[in-house]
Computed example of a mutant assay.
Amino acid sequence: MRPSHLPLRAATGAFILNSGLGKRALPAENAAELQGMAANAFPFVGRWDPGTFGKALCAAEIGIGAALLAPFVPSFVAGAALTAFGGGMMTMYWRTPGMHENGSPRPTQDGIPLAKDSWLLGAGLTLMLEPKRR
């Protein structure tokens, strides 16, 4: 990990790790609500049990956050995980009705919480695209 990656990895890693830790005791009704949104983008998750979905989301967020915070995980690997997660969030944004204005990438009021996650995708791509030192 390059020292210049530390602020980006610490900020994104701490945020995502905290989000995952907060989902450890996710009530079934909250898991079902999150699952419903995710199923707009990824229909296969709609067939899962809500509890299973909640646990998988929790584990994914904890794992991605920990990978970003762990200095021994290469930036490309941590960035790939973050890019996949951020890409998933942007896919939910695009495929969930009412999140953005018709024919426009501009978010509606309801879409702002998902649209804000575009920074995750940008941060992940930044970590992946930076050339390696020789």
Rank of each mutant, 00 (worst) to 15 (best):
R2K: 11
R2L: 11
P3C: 00
S4E: 07
H5E: 13
H5N: 15
L6S: 08
L6Y: 15
P7K: 03
L8D: 01
R9Q: 04
A10H: 08
A10C: 06
A10G: 00
A10P: 00
A10Q: 09
G13D: 06
A14H: 10
F15Y: 14
S19R: 10
G20D: 05
G20W: 07
G20M: 02
L21Q: 14
G22Y: 04
G22Q: 02
G22N: 03
K23F: 03
K23N: 04
K23I: 04
L26A: 05
L26C: 03
A28H: 09
E29D: 12
E29P: 00
A32V: 01
A32F: 07
A32E: 09
E33K: 11
E33C: 00
L34F: 14
L34H: 10
Q35T: 05
A39E: 09
A41K: 04
F42Y: 15
F42S: 06
P43Y: 02
F44L: 13
R47W: 13
W48L: 14
P50F: 13
G51Q: 13
T52M: 12
T52G: 03
G54P: 07
A56V: 09
A56G: 06
L57P: 02
L57A: 12
I62F: 12
G63R: 03
G65T: 08
A66H: 14
L69Y: 01
L69F: 01
L69D: 01
L69A: 01
A70W: 15
A70N: 15
F72W: 15
P74R: 08
P74M: 05
S75V: 01
V77M: 13
V77P: 00
A78D: 12
A78M: 10
A81C: 15
L82R: 07
L82Q: 09
A84Y: 13
G87R: 06
G88W: 03
G88N: 02
M90T: 04
W94E: 13
W94P: 00
R95G: 00
R95A: 09
R95T: 13
T96W: 12
T96K: 01
P97D: 07
P97R: 06
M99L: 06
H100W: 12
E101I: 08
N102Q: 10
N102S: 13
N102R: 12
S104V: 05
P105K: 00
R106P: 00
R106D: 14
R106S: 11
P107K: 01
P107Q: 05
T108D: 02
Q109E: 15
G111C: 10
I112R: 15
P113T: 04
L114W: 14
L114M: 12
L114N: 03
L114D: 05
A115I: 04
A115G: 09
A115L: 06
K116Q: 11
K116M: 13
S118F: 15
W119G: 04
W119R: 08
L120M: 15
G122R: 10
G122A: 10
G122D: 05
A123P: 01
A123W: 06
A123I: 03
G124C: 04
G124L: 05
L125N: 08
T126Q: 07
T126W: 15
T126R: 13
L127I: 05
M128P: 05
L129S: 11
P131R: 06
P131K: 08
P131Q: 04
K132H: 08
K132T: 11
R133I: 12
